[in-house]
Design a protein around this nucleic acid. Structure first.
Length: 457
RNA sequence: GAGGUUGUAGCUCAGUUGGUUAGAGCGCAAGUUUGUGGCACUUGAGGUCGUGGGUUCGAGACCCAUCAUCCUCCCCA
């Protein structure tokens, strides 16, 4: 028999880990609900052509494709072989792969909105917490299956939505105790204006990809990359000026105005940032940072973009991101539905909380009371007593077989159970039970009838 | 897609320039203790050294291949 194993980049989650993950999910979900977002779920798989071409050239390569069933059918052999030849040339063929695992939650959501826009009440605010898959090479903080938690508002152009989303980030990270996170914000319009100003509007993607790496590789390497991507010295000098902008949010806005304020798109972008910055200043404190180097890879963003960064001490980088897309459903034939959304990367948030030791004690609690099993007769009484407690909402279990107390204590210890209820022959005679607090070691004898009045915490 | 790292007990890892019977800690089981745990002590179980070839009198160690893993780049959460 082959050794059991997991597909690369996937993980099992044991009981403790699930509890901790649930803690994160619940925190995020409750904040989403608090802001009036409604839940949505979409299938694990989508039609391949729903996904292809939405994430850029690199993204297409990272989509997990699903091999069609029934290819071994003799009638289809010839067609399958021909199709395979095409795949070897790097093409996608419906005959072989019609479906794919979803790559993110935004495109499936756009597909859903496009299919249901007639029935939806706009603005439609939905949140979605589901796994997504990427055929990436796994490494630190990067998996092939991971969860995203998205919240999007579609059908509204108001920048108030951006403000709300920024505050959701703050609320969630505050509740998780993750002080020191940074919410970086920029506008694609400013990036577009920069490209336009350089005289290379069509080079916007090249420019954004390069400058996004500034904090990672440094100015010199960014300039080298810009040159390699076909920008001339003049253009690079302008970009260097742009990247050199620093100071407080207000100072940055003032300085970018000098550089790009004369351009229509630039002016708009600055107004957007200014509005969000002002609105958040009171509410969300100092966590909002205007960062002109923030670019984000996904092509469909058109306005404000967000990126939540873990505290610098944890070298894990982005723990969430999002932005505005003016015409997402246009890709699916339904134009003029604007939207803005954000995403939390739970797997990375988990790693950050773990590293900073921020999980609260409470997440580890499971069973509250272990009933000892001291024999066939004794365990009958224990069982009925236990069922009474369960009706009161106390989480209980009965040791699965008669055993030495030693063993049963150890079991309780391992499972971090707070109380033992011991019912032996003596207790049965007196209609009582011994309740022992396993943390403190103190114990008392309680009448069976009074047991349900006890608080096992 | 490119580059590198590591694979030895359930887990974390030692294992010298190639040499007889492959070790430790933790965990597990039993006992000291037949109704009171955590500690301590004693004893025990558990390995085809990732897999397949090769070099050698002799390979856990050296060579080749292969699989897996983790990490870096690309890109991303």
């Amino acid at each position: 028999m082959a050794k059991p194993g997991l597909p690369q980049g996937t993980r099992d989650f044991g009981p403790e880990v699930v509890r901790k993950r649930q803690y994160i999910f619940n925190t995020i979900r409750s904040v989403f609900e608090l802001y009036g977002f409604q839940p949505l779920e979409t299938p694990a798989m989508e039609n391949l052509d729903t996904l292809m071409g939405k994430y850029g050239e690199e993204g297409d390569k990272l989509i997990f494709k699903i091999l069609n069933n029934g290819l071994d059918n003799a009638d289809k052999h010839e067609q399958a072989r021909a199709d395979f030849e095409k795949v070897l040339e790097g093409k996608n063929v419906k005959g072989l792969t019609e479906r794919a695992l979803k790559y993110d939650l935004t495109i499936p959501f756009a597909r859903y909105v496009a299919m249901n826009h007639g029935q939806l009440t706009f603005p439609f605010k939905r949140y979605q917490i589901q796994p997504v898959w990427r055929a990436d090479r796994p490494q630190r903080g990067r998996y092939r299956e991971f969860y995203q938690c998205d919240a999007d508002v579609v059908g509204s152009n108001s920048l108030l939505n951006e403000v709300e989303l920024a505050n959701i980030y703050k609320d969630v990270f505050d509740q998780l105790g993750l002080t020191g996170f940074e919410l970086c914000i920029n506008s694609r319009k400013i990036l577009a204006a920069l490209a336009e100003y350089c005289g290379g509007a069509e080079k916007m993607t090249d420019i954004t990809i390069a400058i996004d790496k500034l904090d990672k590789i440094g100015l010199d390497k960014v300039k080298a990359e810009l040159a390699q991507r076909g920008l001339n010295d003049d253009q690079i000098n302008t970009i260097e000026k742009y990247l050199g902008i620093s100071g407080s949010n207000e100072e940055k806005l003032q300085r970018i105005g000098v550089l790009l304020g004369h351009l229509e798109t630039g002016k708009k972008g600055i107004e957007e940032l200014d509005f969000v910055n002002r609105q958040c200043a009171g509410a969300s404190g100092g966590s909002l940072v205007i960062d002109f180097t923030l670019a984000r890879g996904l092509n469909y963003y058109t306005g404000i973009i967000f990126e939540a960064k873990a505290p610098a001490t944890v070298k894990i980088g982005s723990i969430g991101g999002g932005g505005r897309y003016d015409d997402l459903t246009g890709l699916f034939g339904v134009p003029n539905i604007p939207g803005v959304g954000i995403s939390f990367g739970v797997d990375r948030i988990y790693d950050v909380l773990e590293e900073l030791n921020l999980f609260p004690e409470g997440v580890y609690t499971g069973t509250q009371v272990l009933f000892f099993n001291l024999g066939a007769e004794e365990s009958k009484t224990a069982f009925t007593t236990m069922q009474d407690l369960r009706k009161q909402g106390v989480r209980c279990e009965l040791y699965h077989e008669p055993a030495k107390m030693n063993k049963q204590f150890n079991y309780a210890e391992k499972k971090n159970i707070g109380f033992a209820v011991i019912i032996g022959s003596q207790e049965i005679q007196n209609n009582s039970a011994v309740v022992k607090n396993l943390k403190t070691g103190t114990q008392e004898t309680v009448a069976l009838a009074d047991l349900s009045n006890k608080l096992f915490i």
